[in-house]
Amino acid sequence: MSQYASYTSYDGLKLRYRVVERPGSPEEAAPLVCLAGGPGRDAAYLGDLGGLDAHRPLVIPDSRGTGASPPSPEPWGYAFPALAEDLESLRTHLGLESFALLAHDAACATAQAYAAQYGHRLTRLVLVTPGSRLQGELPDDAEEIFESRADEDWWPDAYVAVHTLPTTSDLDEVRSLLLRAAPMGYGRWDAPQRAHAATEPAQLGPVPRAGFWQGVDEPARQALLARLPDVKCPVLVITGDRDALAGLRAGELVATSFRTAAVRTLHGVGHYPWVDEPDLFRPVVESFLTRGHDPEAHEGKHA
């Protein structure tokens, strides 16, 4: 069951969010707030995150200019530090003293910005297949994973699409190319993956996507990173060994920004673990949310 509601953010803009919960789930269960990536993608692609709604409600906001939420009145409102302020406004609206947060893809930057500023509000933090642009490094192992899959049927067309994308700014062509390149984001290219990928072109918002990384200069980035070691809540970084979009090393780099982080790599999984292997992804997250650790995860850097 999914229902929409609204909240008023720090600048007076009314934003929308969904509450996804299963009938019969425990009424006293604390919600899990879930942030969509893209950047600038309609949060509908998260679905129920492989059934994570079985034990707790999922609160899934539509960020500015995506889904049911209106555009930002100012361009800087799309930048990930500003989106973190939207999240704090949502927390206040929900009346939560503290909460667990899950973020996917680019939204992991928003989650890190939130943790740096409001880490005392977090009980658990799950970062799913993050990139490491915020850390200032772009590892090349995603390309290595892509090349290792060259014997798969979809690969030649995806290869052409990937190398054509940087040469065009036409939105319709970009969306077509993204769909052709989509198999590289999944552990395999079966019916569930094809259906999930087919939703992406229509879900991308070009304005919020363009504004996500804007206006964050080097001193601000360094100041944000400097605060992450002070985050006290347990942090779990989930990566997929077939993720040809983010790779594995980016998640490991993100984990080194925290003292309390561990990395769990899922086998046979791409950029969307809840689509590829929901029965593998869900127990890993559930275990972490209930116990605060995953016995099979390996630790990131600890000072």
Rank of each mutant, 00 (worst) to 15 (best):
L58R: 14
L178M: 13
G12V: 09
G65A: 09
P130A: 05
A82M: 13
E88N: 09
A82C: 09
T168A: 07
D276I: 12
V284C: 00
G51T: 05
R242Y: 04
L13G: 02
G300W: 00
A142M: 08
E74T: 15
A36I: 02
E200G: 05
G51M: 03
A210H: 13
A142Q: 05
H196W: 13
D217W: 14
L46S: 14
I60S: 03
R149M: 00
G268S: 14
V254G: 02
V285E: 02
L236G: 00
A142I: 06
A181F: 15
P183T: 07
V20W: 08
L96C: 10
L245E: 11
D153R: 08
L90M: 10
P61W: 01
W76N: 10
S132P: 06
L224S: 01
Q135R: 05
S25D: 12
D243M: 08
R209D: 14
Q203S: 15
G211F: 06
D153V: 06
A116I: 09
V254Y: 01
E152S: 02
G24I: 01
G50A: 02
Y17P: 06
D217N: 15
A36T: 03
G215H: 15
F212E: 04
T290R: 06
S169D: 15
A79I: 06
R249K: 13
D105V: 05
L46T: 12
S9W: 00
G24T: 01
L177E: 07
R242S: 03
I238L: 00
F146V: 03
A226N: 06
D241W: 11
P206Y: 13
T256P: 01
A103P: 02
